[in-house]
Computed example of a mutant assay.
Amino acid sequence: MPERNIEFGKYGARGIRGHEAVARQLDALATFIATPITTRRGLLARLHYLTRTEHARATAREAGLTVTDRTLKAWLEERRSPSKRNLEKIESAYRTVRRQNVARYLLLRLTREGRGTRVEFHPLNQSQVPRTRQRAVEYRTLNVRHWDRVVRAWAAGDDAALDEAWVNDVVVDLGSQWGEYEFVTAIGFAA
């Protein structure tokens, strides 16, 4: 794509990629467990979520939590504690399973029976860029009706697919200036 930014931040502009801001917003809508995994309550909440059904257990195994049922039982009964590496695996599996479980609901919520969701693009921060190099970038809004590829890529945790879906399905609809919104300070939408 001709308008992809190659040297973003060269003159002091600050921001994040649009797909990263969308992923953060979708994560906020997914409402993950707020208690940290390092606490007993947070660990037990995640383990219960991952082990309450056979489907959840299978999905957790696919997501990388490959411990035996005996080990899981020992963790749940507080006879043993997971290692730091296993805590990371539990957290990763939990987030993956939660995203997959919530994706269908979020897709319905965002498409709103074809009406879509209004998305706010907050432009990149140019306060550190010399005046002669600043672009005229403004706050924009867009009603997004097609969320399928975006939500699917987010649920799979595939950043490259999420970036491609976000740029090709959403950002290009901003018109000829879509390249100015590849990097943003924030993306906002309330679904």
Rank of each mutant, 00 (worst) to 15 (best):
P82I: 07
L124P: 08
L43K: 03
R112Q: 15
V167R: 13
A153R: 06
T31K: 08
V22C: 01
R17D: 08
V119G: 00
L107G: 02
G114C: 05
V171R: 08
W178H: 11
A153E: 06
T31V: 08
T53F: 05
A155N: 01
N101S: 09
R17S: 01
K10N: 09
V119P: 01
A45C: 04
T71G: 04
V170L: 07
G157E: 05
T66W: 05
N5A: 13
R57E: 11
T53G: 04
V119C: 02
Y139F: 11
V67M: 09
T39D: 09
R24G: 07
E20R: 00
Q128I: 10
R52C: 14
A23P: 07
L108P: 12
L29V: 05
A56F: 03
L124G: 03
W166A: 05
Y94L: 06
R99H: 02
V170S: 11
A153M: 09
T38Q: 11
L76M: 14
H48I: 13
Y105H: 11
A56E: 15
N125R: 14
G116R: 12
V129H: 13
G18Q: 01
R152M: 05
S127D: 14
E120D: 08
L174H: 03
R118W: 09
E120V: 11
M1E: 10
V170R: 04
G188V: 15
R112G: 04
L65P: 15
S127M: 14
R118V: 15
P82G: 07
A60F: 09
A153W: 04
V171Q: 11
S127K: 15
V167K: 02
A190L: 12
T96S: 14
R152D: 02
T31G: 06
T132K: 12
R80C: 05
K10H: 08
L142S: 08
V129L: 02
E7A: 11
E3I: 06
L142R: 02
E120I: 13
A186W: 08
E20D: 08
A23N: 07
L108T: 07
Y181P: 00
L142G: 10
D158E: 08
I187F: 03
G157T: 03
W166D: 04
G116N: 12
N143A: 10
E164A: 09
A13H: 03
E180L: 14
Y11S: 00
L108G: 15
L47K: 01
H122S: 05
R61D: 03
D163A: 06
R85P: 00
G12R: 10
R133G: 06
V184D: 03
H19L: 02
D159E: 15
F189C: 01
R17I: 02
A136W: 09
V22E: 02
I16S: 12
L29A: 12
V97R: 03
P36K: 06
Q126T: 04
E3W: 04
R85H: 05
L50D: 13
L142K: 10
V170E: 04
